[in-house]
Amino acid sequence: MMYSLALASAGAAAQDTVFSATVVEPYLDMRTQPGRGYPVFYVAERGEHLELLRQRTDWIKVRNARGIEGWVHVDDIGKTVDGSGATLALKGPDFDSFTRRNWEFGFMVGDYDSTDTLGAYLGWHFTRNLSVELEASENFGDYSDGRMITASLVHQMFPQWRYSPFLTIGGGVRQTNPRSTLVSTQDRTDNTADVGAGLRIHLTRRLLLRLQYKYYVVMTDRDDDEEVNEWKIGISAFF
């Protein structure tokens, strides 16, 4: 960081840290906008210094010494060096980053006890095998709607597999609201416990597909607990 600071040109945003890169490959393509379809309008030569201004998805906005600004793919910036000659450790997300992901966010739709269900979750991987997940979901039945918040511990046995199976166990709280078209009954709140299994499939770059089954026990005040099967499919991204 100090090297980049030292290299920062005087005119550019003095209060912000400016990172710089030097081209070591024969050339570096600069595009007009962040996207692979946009035209290359400038080609930086070997030895040229670039300021790294900002990053949007897999593209980095750069400015050269003559003030020409353009967008360079992060994998290409990963082939440049900083002021001390150290390679910039920048690259786009790939399968390797999938196996080493820390956070995962996604949403899922499916079937909860023969009703439509919808949920969003956030997961934190504290080891390569284990993660904790927090999920909020809502289901819409003919007789009642429900909202549920669950926390789960998720274990994936083979984090290095593209098709990665997992087991999950958790608990939470469920609120059930009978539909307004029915004779009025009370809303109720119950605790739940669940076990489940599923599969994560790395699709491309940062995206993964998630399939899961969960078996819930809703601990009601009545004589019998409710036992519910839930199937879900969802799309998630990791970071």
């Binding site: 960081m1 090297y3 912000d16 990053q55 910039l88």
Partner: peptide, 12 residues
């Protein structure tokens, strides 16, 4: 081999 990871401002 030295690597540096600049914390570039992201706007995703």
């Amino acid at each position: 081999q030295e690597f540096s990871s600049p914390a570039i401002n992201r706007d995703d």
